[in-house]
């Protein structure tokens, strides 16, 4: 899978199914802080959960506790980096 990787940072929509990453940065988005309101803030862990039958949108497991569905067009505004060692998981 091609990743538009730069300093290990890439858009969330390129995260493989099942793998986890940490949010590095939220790019400016048209909704204005709406993603942050849903819980997408830098430092939060995010895991690609599953996709809809059409492949888009995708549901992401956010912080290990809530499941949020995003379209690829929205997910590309979220930049993530792969967690260094083991898959960090938060259950709380």
């Amino acid at each position: 899978m091609f990743l538009s990787e730069k300093n290990g940072v890439f858009p969330l929509n390129e995260l493989d199914r099942g793998s986890a990453a940490v949010i590095a940065e939220i790019k400016a988005e048209p909704g204005g802080g709406r993603l942050a309101e849903m819980g997408f803030v830098p430092g939060e862990t995010v895991q690609n959960g599953f996709s809809s039958p059409a492949g888009d949108p995708t549901a992401y497991l956010l912080g290990g506790c809530s499941l949020v569905a995003l379209r690829n067009s929205e997910a590309k505004n979220i930049l993530v980096k792969i967690i260094a060692e083991q898959k960090e998981r938060c259950n709380i």
């Binding site: 048209p30 909704g31 709406r34 993603l35 809530s66 949020v68 569905a69 067009s73 929205e74």
Partner: peptide, 10 residues
């Protein structure tokens, strides 16, 4: 631009 950011409850 249409967006779809929605929480999927357990």
């Amino acid at each position: 631009e249409a967006v779809f950011a929605m929480e999927l409850p357990e």
